[in-house]
Amino acid sequence: MLAARHFLRRTFSSALATHRDTAYNNRDTPFDFTEENYQKITTILTHYPPQYKRSATINLLYLAQKQCDGWVPLAAMNKIAKILEISEMDVYEVCSFYTMFNREPVGKYHLQVCGTTPCMIRGAQDIIKTIEHECGIIKDQTSKDGLFTLTEVECLGCCANAPMLQVNGEKVYEDLTPETMKAMIDAWKAGKEPKVGPQNGRTCAEGIQGRTTLKAQPNVWPDRDFAKAKDDYQKRLEAEAQKKKEEAAAAAAKK
């Protein structure tokens, strides 16, 4: 068991630095981007000079990960290499370097619990234990029903609302306690979506006494009549053109 755990241990969320052919993930697994994603790719590629197409590698890997329910198959990496006209190895290097790319399938809910200092002090380990207990998995495993994958990740920038949890790299749940965590898991198991954001009732990162500053809606934009300004600009242009014409006429008359 220990050996198995060690083998499956995902250092920085990547199981192995090399690929192993499996029935669900090999060179011949069919993969192609959807029509919608191809349109997105066309847009992404316009962001970079044509000779530096390779800059789009990460963006395309994200698209592939989203399309494949949270993980990047080998076939997708090869497809990206083909689209960007770079060697396949270049894509493998990027994909295996970044921890946000999963190169193995994950559950429907990929629970990424922050384990960095502020969250750890506020009880991140208890949250992890709760998930482990409730889902019957340990870190870096997927539950048998295919619903949950648990990973411990580094700081996700919600230290004021620690401890926190990110799901599928998109939704963020903050101010967790073991109880709220259990309730959330139950909700997911029942097919419901728990409320996103702080779970203890507060909004955003407000302090204990509620909101103290910025109570009124700030007047960010100064009062300005844009229609009038545009009109003035047009008039000024016309006046200048008129003046030039008159001058030209005067010069011609002199001659």
Partner: peptide
């Protein structure tokens, strides 16, 4: 022949072909 590369990161970095 761009077949080799470094895969993984940090302590787990490996030089190799990624696929076998």
């Amino acid at each position: 022949i761009p077949i080799l590369g470094t895969t993984g990161r940090g302590r787990e970095t490996e030089v190799g072909t990624y696929v076998e």
